[in-house]
Structure formats: structure tokens, C-alpha cells
Design a binder for these strands. Structure first.
Lengths: 187, 187
DNA sequence: ACTTTATTTTGATAAGTATCGAATTAAATT
DNA sequence: AATTTAATTCGATACTTATCAAAATAAAGT
């Protein structure tokens, strides 16, 4: 949540009918709080509140003038924004603090018992893959295992060790010698 | 409220942290409802609701794929929007249904009694102007009045007819002969 | 046809926020 | 200094909406 909050507060600032109208009015000319209140049919306190939010995101600014504080639109800020707001970087940044492994974790959690064994082997590709990525971590990288040892390890997860073994190889998560004499975890 | 509601619904659609994250995630690759729910730590029903709003504004669309309905970002729509959303026309259109005379009306209402007479003559320029624009309507356009008649008409508004008359001329709302023999309403 | 799985819809609830009125602050004229 | 006027702040209320749980759909594999 570095600067994607900037995006969010910006959109929130504009996600109100009256604030949008204020921006539209100020695009034509500067106005005082009192004038805006009369134009919108709102109380001055309400308009003041709206203006404060627009100031906070840098869209408008105020200058004192006689009795009034006159608000005006910062058009350069508006232009800058229209160019940057929807840039690919800004868009993708909104999801940067999302844990991309959360789906795998949830699937694994859904399919495993408290003792770590699998309730069933998922039938669906996506979920099977998630579970396989979990199971393969029981093997050390760079180490070779014979089939008997592989089955022993897999039996902690499910009795159908043959299926698990086959799926692991099929998914490319484990490799094996052509003659089946040895298995190892893919890098 | 023709298409400025489009602007509003668009901003509202993006004015939510989780919907922004969804857009950010879909910018990277398509996802199913279930996956998004796991990634965001939300229930599927909630995500479904968010996606429906994003679909409604045309930012994302869904395609059925096996068990899942896979949602993807409409990047062209995103680009179109980023260009048009902050255009001067769109911005000013948000205020197009605002009654620009509302301020004058309010000022006049504040300063007049039920019988139409003025409580006081406003000291402030802006309000005085608003009241003068109201008072001048008591005169027909294209007709000439002598000073006595002008004062009779103005006396319905305030006893200080001399000030009213002077201000009306000063504001350019009424014209007069150099010798003061006749007054008429400016076009 | 039946079962499983994902999605959507529907209420209900909780969190957020727009609005107002009253009180306070700030600024300018008398 | 005192008074008027505009703006802001504060507290309360009403409205909106994000979220979830449960029920209803939809779709696929058995």
C-alpha cells in the first residue's frame, strides 16, 4: 500500500455526484463555498467538507479573497492525473500487495486433513496442480530417490501413491530416468 | 443527467480497494471467481458482486470455461476511458444540470421580505449585483422612464431609492441621458 | 438422471459516509 | 474593540454499500 492508496483516494474523491458537479463547475470558473452551496442546494458545511476532500487529492486549491475563500480547479493536476491514473504501472500496482500464493494455500488447506494427508486427490486440473506443487516440497531438490522411497514419502499424503507419482511427473514437477530407476525433483 | 452518470458509475466502480485489486490482478492475467476470492481473502459471493459492477461499466468481461467463468480485463476499454474520462467535455458535463441562477435566487430570497421589499441593500459586491439583477426586472426593456417614475418603482424595494438608482446605473444594468432626464433598462 | 462444483442471487448485517445543524474560528468592516 | 459574515469543525443522523451466509442456478462429469 505505497501509492495505490493514492489511486483509491483519488477515485473515492470523484465517486460522489456532488463532488463531481463541483469539479465540473470549477472547470468553468472559480467559486466560493457559499456560491457552490447555493448552486448545488447544499449547506455550506457540506460543501466545505467536499472541497476539503478535493483539496486533499490535489484537484482543487483555495485562495482567500475578501470575505471569501475562493476555490479553483488545478487543471494541470487534472491533466497529469488523466495521463497517469490508468497507466499499466499504476493499474498493476493496485494488486502488488496481494499474496499470489493465496489460491494454492487455500486449495491445499481445503484438501488436507490436520495430519497433512489428503482427503482426496483433486479431479480438477487447477486444484490438482496446486496440491502437487505442495506435495513436491516433500522432496529435496538435487537428491535422487528410488521408486520405493518415493512411494513411502507419498503415502503420507494419499494411499494412491501411484497416481500421485504419475501426476507429479506428468506435471513436470518431478523427473525420472527412462528406465524408472530414479526420481528427482525438478528445479 | 445524460452521460455524466456514466462518469459517476465509473468512478464509483473503481472507488473500492478490492475492486481496484481485482482490476490490477486481471491486468496480469484472467482469473476465475474462486481464484480471485482466495487471492483477496473474500467470499466468492462478494467477489461475484464486485465483478458484476466492473462488468456493468465495461471494464471486464467473462467467458465460460469448463466449471469456471473466467473474467478478464478489457484493456481497450481501459485505454478508451483513460483518454476520455478527464476530457474537458466530460468534466464540464458533470455540472450541466446545475441551475446557474440558483445563487442569485438564493441571495434575492435572503434579502427580500414576503412583500418583495428589501430588508437591506447588500453591502457586498456579489450580493448587491445579484439583487440589482433582480430589481432591474421591474423595468421593461426599450421603455424610457423619468427620474420620478424610476423612484416610484424602486420605492417598492427600498426607501433609499437614490442609492438603488445609482447602483443600477453603476452596474450598467440601467442607462440614462447625460442630463438625467431619462432612464431605461440596458439590453 | 444424479452428484459435485462454481457461480449468482437474495437477505441481513455491519461499516462507511453524505448531510445537516450548532458551535467555533477567521476575516473584514464599522 | 465590536459586529457582521464566511468558512470550518464537530456531533448526530440517515443513507449507502461492502460483506457474508444461505438458497437458488448453472454446468460438467459420473
Amino acid at each position: 500500500m505505497t501509492e495505490n492508496t493514492e489511486l483509491l483516494t483519488m477515485f473515492k474523491a470523484l465517486a460522489d455526484a456532488n463532488r463531481l458537479k463541483i469539479v465540473g463547475l470549477l472547470a468553468g470558473q472559480p467559486y466560493s463555498v457559499e456560491e457552490l452551496a447555493a448552486l448545488l442546494g447544499l449547506k455550506a458545511s457540506t460543501v466545505s467538507h467536499h472541497l476539503a476532500r478535493l483539496v486533499k487529492v490535489g484537484l482543487v486549491n483555495a485562495r482567500a479573497e475578501g470575505y471569501y475563500s475562493v476555490y479553483q480547479l488545478d487543471k494541470s493536476a487534472l491533466e497529469t492525473m488523466s495521463r497517469s491514473l490508468f497507466s499499466p504501472e499504476k493499474i498493476t500496482s493496485t494488486a502488488e500487495d496481494v499474496d499470489l500464493d493465496a489460491y494454492d494455500h487455500k486449495v491445499v488447506a481445503d484438501y488436507t486433513r490436520r495430519d497433512g494427508s489428503l482427503k482426496t486427490i483433486p479431479a480438477q486440473r487447477k486444484k490438482l496442480d496446486a496440491v502437487l506443487r505442495h506435495v513436491v516440497q516433500a522432496f529435496e531438490t538435487g537428491k535422487h530417490y528410488n521408486e520405493k522411497r518415493v512411494n513411502e514419502i507419498l503415502s503420507a499424503y494419499h494411499e494412491d501413491t501411484a497416481s500421485l507419482r504419475r501426476e507429479l511427473v506428468g506435471a513436470g514437477l518431478m523427473k525420472r530416468e527412462r528406465d524408472g530407476s530414479a526420481y528427482w525433483r525438478a528445479e
